[in-house]
């Protein structure tokens, strides 16, 4: 193309600007813009515009009366943000969300890695079992929420029946009603949906060159050393990636928990505070209490927290990640 020829000569700044503008004379450029139009429209109307609007609303008292047109929208400055500090449910929801994420992420990673390592060693049969372990991942989250209620039911649930079959347990915990057991049961249920992470690890494990293990074995490395010093570094990009993704997913947890514990009430008990996740509290403020301004402030706090956690995760774990390409 003509543009590449121009670029290839590396012209100085004035000509480069002219070359840049000259591309607007080409039909190709306008076709390209036409092709990306769907995204551009969506970006402006459904992403950028709402972001700005969301920030604006977070500085107002926008709520149910304003939606209905009964009251004027008033600018309240940082009031919504200072209200976040006084609202006792915010720290509660954050604590719940972090505890749940803190349990779910490592558990999922360990189980996924264990399953993938076993699948790798059983040859062709591994493909069949990979499908089996992936099935929970395609179970709708609402169904998972319902399964939590029935499987972990304190008196009748299958989990407690299995536990009580053990000689040293008389009565299993009341998972769905005891505040200290709600989050563990949610975490266990998410570990059930380990399939996606496992598939990623399986692909990573298959990519580890066999000769590294042979060399390590020749040097007399034990199975544990081979795992620690060959396997883990070689699959560290996959571990890193899933760590980031799972953490974000954990912080965003909504559907399973909302299904099981919120709404018209499905446990018969009161809505348990121990299950109040940040995304659920945000949803309620916005769409059940219609405190839109306050909810927008909550959303921005959430945005900052998710970004900060992700950044910390990246910075904190980056040095353990080994990229094969960089060494060559």
């Amino acid at each position: 193309m003509a543009t590449t020829a121009v670029n290839a000569t590396r012209p100085g700044p004035p000509t480069r600007a002219r070359a840049w503008f000259s591309r607007f004379r080409e039909r190709e450029t306008w076709f390209a813009y036409a092709f990306i139009l769907p995204w551009a429209f969506g970006f402006v109307v459904l992403t950028a515009g709402p972001m700005i609007a969301s920030f604006y609303f977070s500085l107002t008292n926008y709520g149910v009366e304003q939606i209905g047109g009964f009251a004027e929208t008033e600018y309240v400055g940082a009031e919504n943000y200072s209200r976040l500090l006084d609202d006792g449910k915010i720290p509660l929801a954050l604590k719940n969300t972090f505890i749940y994420t803190g349990m779910m992420v490592p558990a999922t990673m360990v189980v996924a890695l264990a399953l993938a390592s076993i699948l790798l060693r059983i040859g062709r049969a591994g493909d069949f079992f990979r499908t089996v372990f992936y099935l929970p991942q395609i179970t709708p989250p609402v169904a998972v929420g319902i399964l939590i209620l029935v499987l972990f039911n304190g008196s009748y649930g299958v989990v407690n029946r299995a536990l009580e079959a053990l000689p040293f347990i008389e009565q299993g915990p009341f998972w769905t009603t005891d505040p200290s057991w709600i989050k563990p049961s949610l975490a266990i249920m998410s570990v059930w949906a380990v399939g996606g992470t496992m598939v990623i690890y399986l692909a990573a494990l298959r990519g580890v060159p066999q000769h590294l293990y042979e060399a390590a074995a020749m040097d007399g490395a034990s199975a544990f050393r081979r795992f620690k010093d060959v396997t883990l570094p070689m699959i560290s990009p996959a571990l890193f990636f899933t760590f980031i993704i799972l953490t974000i997913a954990g912080l965003n947890t909504f559907t399973e928990v909302y299904t099981a514990y919120f709404g018209a009430g499905s446990t018969g008990a009161e809505e348990p505070e121990a299950a109040l996740m940040y995304a659920i509290y945000l949803f309620r403020q916005a769409f059940q209490f219609f405190n839109m301004g306050y909810a927008a402030a909550m959303a921005w706090l959430f945005f900052v927290i998710v970004m900060a956690v992700t950044l910390l995760n990246i910075l904190g774990t980056r040095r353990f990640v080994f990229y094969q390409g960089a060494q060559r």
Partner: peptide, 19 residues
């Protein structure tokens, strides 16, 4: 495009509802 992948849905959810 890539940046919008990082954006949590919660931030745009309310204005989108208002639209």
């Amino acid at each position: 495009v890539l940046a919008t992948m990082m954006l949590p849905g919660a931030v745009t959810m309310i204005p989108e509802y208002l639209i």
